[in-house]
């Protein structure tokens, strides 16, 4: 992927730990999550409900649910600036103008009492803009493939389909040419044919405007098609990170392998998917050491300790002791049955 003249990453998340304060003290939700997104890159953050992927996204814009949500430690650097240290006024300039966000349910994210025109003009009211916002919003609707802008602009959200609303949301998120688009499950509520249209649209925008995309999803098929890099989260931790090609060629973490085996596959023969035994733990029940070990077919003695993200070559890292440095040098008897380290 091409780099900006500015060679530092667009977004750098460093050891980000997020917690929620409740009656029984602070519950840790994510634990030392680190990743980088380069300009123009599409990054897929994957995991199941409660793994911390959405909360991680919300924290990037300091949008954690209040009261309660807080960043416990770590840094979020956007073009070198620490978002967590920004003043409210600087933060307001960042939101919408430099980082755009689209949500899972476009119907719930738009104001039901405002016609589309008023919602689309909102960013221009909040941010300085040279030019005619009315012209700009028409160009944006055209850009997102809306053929009859007059009807859509005068419609209220309930008068439009889910696919149309998601287009409106994308138009709004792109109105000030952000450098980063955060898309939290952008197509989960949509039909497959509309999903393909929306994903293709995001892909075009990325190619033409070099907008980086952070795509949060539970769908590995979408990541395979539309992301350059993938990060897999489990129980608040990043457990594997890799370029997508390498991830699909050699999926290393047993949880990632389990996710792939559980995925219904159009490109495979008939026959049911293989479930991962057990269930995703709640934060209060996180095990010490590797949090996946009670569901892992390969768990062995070292898993009682916390695995680092070990480098596995080709920009691929994995938090699993099967892939710890020196693991391949262990005598075969020290490795669990079926391990392919």
């Amino acid at each position: 992927m091409a780099m900006d003249s500015d060679s530092r990453p667009l977004l750098k998340v460093e050891d980000l730990s997020i917690g929620f304060a409740g009656e029984g003290g602070v519950t840790s939700i994510t634990d030392s999550v680190s990743f980088e997104i380069q300009p123009g890159e599409a990054y897929g953050l994957v995991g199941e409900s409660g793994c911390g992927k959405s909360v991680t996204c919300l924290s990037l814009l300091k949008l954690l649910p209040m009261p309660g949500g807080r960043v416990l430690s770590g840094r979020i650097l956007f073009r070198g600036r620490d978002i967590l240290a920004l003043q409210p006024e600087e933060l307001r300039r960042l939101r919408g103008a430099e980082i755009g966000m689209i949500f899972q349910e476009p119907g719930a994210a738009l104001n039901p009492l405002w016609p589309v025109r008023r919602q689309l003009l909102e960013p221009f009211r909040l941010h300085p803009y040279q030019g005619d916002p009315n012209q700009r919003i028409r160009a944006l609707l055209d850009r997102v493939g809306i053929a009859d802008p007059d009807r859509v602009l005068s419609s209220y959200p309930h008068q439009l389909s889910g696919g149309m609303l998601q287009r409106v949301m994308i138009a709004m998120a792109l109105s000030l040419n952000p450098k980063l688009l955060i898309a939290d499950e952008p197509t989960t509520a949509l039909d497959v044919t509309v999903q393909a249209q929306i994903m293709e649209l995001i892909e075009d925008l990325r190619r033409e405007s070099r907008t980086a995309v952070l795509m949060v999803t539970h769908n590995l098929n979408l990541v395979a098609q539309y992301a350059d890099r993938v990060g897999v989260m489990y129980a608040g931790r990043l457990v594997e990170e890799s370029p997508v090609d390498d991830f699909l060629r050699r999926t290393l973490h047993p949880y990632s392998q389990g996710l792939l085996a559980a995925l219904p596959r159009l490109d495979a023969g008939a026959g049911p998917m293989k479930p991962i035994p057990g269930q995703v733990p709640r934060p209060a029940d996180y095990l010490p050491g590797c949090r996946f070990r009670d569901r892992c077919p390969h768990a062995f003695a070292p898993c009682g300790g916390k695995p680092d993200l070990f480098p596995a070559g080709s920009g691929h890292t994995v938090a699993c002791f099967l892939h710890a440095p020196g693991a391949s040098a262990l005598p075969a008897s020290a490795l669990p049955a079926g391990a392919s380290a």
Partner: peptide, 22 residues
């Protein structure tokens, strides 16, 4: 056919195809 073609898979060589309209 259009429904099947619009579904993303793990195969990076096969891009989902678009069905226009609603």
């Amino acid at each position: 056919a259009a429904l099947l073609e619009s579904i993303p898979t793990l195969d990076r060589g096969r891009r989902p195809k678009l069905l226009g309209g609603e």
